[in-house]
Amino acid sequence: MTHILIIDDDEDDRELLTIAIHEVDPSIHCAMARNGEEALHGLKVMEFPKPHVIFLDLNMPRLNGDQFMNELRKDRELHDIPVVIYTTSKLKEDAEKMRALGASDFLTKPTSFNELCRSVKEILAKVTTHS
């Protein structure tokens, strides 16, 4: 079974992404966290299974996307998890910075559900063939 962790402070965005993921593959298990701090804690205490991929928002309270990536990459048990940035940011600098921190993909939150499903399908195809 494929496990995905969605880290986003916006409940509607978490829900929409989960629906899109299940549209692509209903068997995928999605765990959720409201910020990087909650996600990091959950990963370290194994509150949820080690994910095959993490979808990470950048702008969150407590521990934002940048800070989460820095902490994740320092952890010997978790550093190899592929991370897809899932954000409203369209800034090229944000994409470059997150790729430099090890993000495997950068997805700007799409305006249409079909576009989101198409992007999720492409990303999951890449990630699951490399795991």
Rank of each mutant, 00 (worst) to 15 (best):
E15W: 15
T128Q: 06
R99L: 14
A31N: 05
V53S: 04
A20I: 05
R118F: 12
M69L: 07
M46Q: 12
N64E: 03
E96T: 11
D9G: 12
K121Q: 02
E11H: 05
F48C: 00
C30M: 10
E115Y: 03
F55K: 06
I19V: 10
A103L: 13
I81W: 11
R14I: 07
T129R: 15
D105C: 00
S27P: 00
L17R: 02
F68A: 01
D80A: 07
E47H: 02
L40S: 07
L107H: 03
H29M: 04
V127A: 04
S89Y: 13
E15A: 06
E96H: 08
S104F: 07
P26W: 14
T128V: 14
H130A: 07
K92M: 11
D75L: 12
K90R: 04
H79L: 09
L63Q: 05
L17E: 09
V120M: 02
H3V: 01
H22N: 09
D9W: 12
N59Y: 04
L91M: 06
L58G: 06
L78A: 05
K50S: 06
T18R: 08
N70V: 11
H29D: 11
R62M: 08
V24C: 11
E93M: 09
L107F: 14
K121A: 03
V83D: 10
P26G: 10
H130M: 11
L78I: 10
L116H: 11
M1T: 15
V45K: 10
D13I: 12
D94M: 07
C30A: 04
R34M: 13
L101D: 13
S89V: 04
L107D: 04
D10M: 09
Q67R: 03
R99V: 10
E77A: 01
E77P: 02
R76F: 07
K74W: 15
E37Y: 10
T18G: 13
H29P: 04
H41F: 12
M60W: 13
L17W: 14
D10W: 12
T128K: 14
S131T: 13
N114A: 01
L101A: 05
P26Y: 15
K44G: 03
T2Q: 09
F48S: 00
K109H: 12
T111Q: 02
S89G: 05
V84T: 04
E47V: 05
P110Q: 06
